[in-house]
Nucleic acid binder design. Structure first.
Length: 303
DNA sequence: CGGATTTGACCAAG
DNA sequence: CTTGGTCAAATCCG
C-alpha cells in the first residue's frame, strides 16, 4: 500500500490540529461580532462564521473517526476476508426476488460514514458541476425535504461524488449543501464559478475559464443575486502566495459577490477550500484587467 | 428517443 | 421499529 497506517495518522493529526485552530479563530471572530451586533464591517457574517466553525469541528471529528474506523477495519481485515453485502444477501432467502443480478443488488450498499464530506451554505444551488438527482426524502423534524444528487459521470467514469441539498428552515432562500467525496471523473471544477452582482440590476454571471484566469460572462441562469460583502482589508497574509499553482484544485465554497465587475476594479470576496493545500482560505479581492483577466499574484488572501 | 427527474420501495443502521 | 440513503420503474421533457 502507498501509505502506512502510522503515516496516515500523522497526516491526519496535522489536519485535525489545523481544523481545530481554524475553528478556534472563527469562534473568536464570531465572539467579536456578537459583541457588536450592529456593526456590519465584518468580512464574514455571524451565520457564516457559525457554519465555518461547525465545518471545522465536523471535519476534525471526521478525521479522528476515520483514523479510528480505519484502524479497526485494518485489524479486522488482517484476520480474514471481510464479508461483503452480497454474502449477506445470500442468507436473505425465502422471499421471491423480482429479477436477478442488478435488481438483486438493490439497496445493497454500505453507508458512507468515512467519506470525506463538507458542508456549505449558499443561496445558489448551482455549483458548476454536473449533478443528477437520484432521490428526495422527507427528513424528520425538517420542514423541507432533502435532495440527493450524484455525479453525472458516476457510471461512465466511476465518479463517486455525491451531494445532499436541503433548504434551510431559518432562511428558505438559502440551501445547505453537503458534499460527500471528491470528484474523480475529471469533471473537477478547476476554477471557481463566480457569480457577480452589480449595484444596479440586472446582475450578471461570470465564470473563470479552466485554462486561464479569465472571467467570461456566462449565460444567464436563474440564480438570485448573491449578497454583497463589504471589503475587508488585512495585511497580506500567509504562505499561500507560494502555493498559488494549486489553484486548480481549489473548491470554492461560496460565490463571489462583486461590487462591480468592471475591469480594473477590486472586487469582493469568497471562501474556498483547497484540496492540495488542505486548508480553507478567503480571497479578499481580485483585480480585473480590461479583458476580465486577473493576476493570481494580486490576490489578497485571508486564512 | 435518450437523459433527467419523480417517487415508492428497499435496505442498513441504530 | 424508525430513519435516512439508495435504487429503479415510471414519467417528464427537450
Amino acid at each position: 500500500m502507498a501509505t502506512s497506517w502510522t503515516e496516515k495518522i500523522s497526516i491526519n493529526r496535522e489536519r485535525v490540529v489545523k481544523e481545530l485552530v481554524q475553528g478556534q479563530e472563527s469562534a473568536t471572530h464570531l465572539q467579536f461580532l456578537l459583541e457588536k451586533p450592529y456593526g456590519d464591517n465584518g468580512f464574514l457574517s455571524a451565520n457564516e462564521l457559525a457554519v465555518k466553525i461547525l465545518r471545522s469541528f465536523t471535519e476534525a471529528l471526521t478525521l479522528l473517526t476515520c483514523d479510528f474506523v480505519q484502524n479497526f477495519q485494518n485489524q479486522i481485515t488482517s484476520q480474514g476476508d471481510s464479508a461483503c453485502c452480497d454474502d449477506r444477501r445470500s442468507e436473505d432467502s425465502g422471499e421471491s426476488r423480482k429479477r436477478a443480478t442488478t435488481k438483486e443488488r438493490r439497496g445493497c450498499y454500505k453507508r458512507k460514514k468515512t467519506s470525506q464530506s463538507w458542508t456549505t451554505v449558499s443561496d445558489a444551488i448551482e455549483d458548476g458541476h454536473a449533478w443528477r438527482k437520484y432521490g428526495q426524502k422527507e427528513i424528520l423534524n425538517a420542514k423541507y425535504p432533502r435532495s440527493y444528487f450524484r455525479c453525472t459521470h458516476k457510471y461512465d467514469k466511476g465518479c463517486k461524488a455525491t451531494k445532499q441539498v436541503q433548504r434551510m428552515e431559518e432562511d428558505p432562500q438559502m440551501y445547505q449543501t453537503t458534499y460527500i467525496g471528491h470528484h474523480t471523473c475529471g469533471d473537477i471544477l478547476k476554477v471557481p464559478q463566480i457569480i457577480t452582482t452589480r449595484d444596479s440590476s440586472p446582475w450578471e454571471s461570470y465564470k473563470l475559464t479552466s485554462n486561464s484566469n479569465t472571467l467570461t460572462q456566462m449565460d444567464h441562469q436563474h440564480h438570485p443575486p448573491t449578497k454583497i460583502k463589504q471589503e475587508y482589508k488585512e495585511e497580506n497574509p500567509s504562505d499561500l502566495t507560494d502555493n498559488l499553482s494549486s489553484l486548480d484544485s481549489i473548491i470554492w465554497k461560496d460565490l463571489v459577490a462583486f461590487e462591480s465587475a468592471e475591469p480594473g476594479d477590486l472586487v469582493a470576496s469568497t471562501e474556498a477550500t483547497s484540496q492540495s493545500l488542505d486548508m480553507d482560505f478567503a480571497v479578499n479581492s481580485i483585480e480585473l484587467d480590461s479583458d476580465f483577466h486577473f493576476d493570481e499574484s494580486k490576490f489578497n488572501y485571508l486564512t
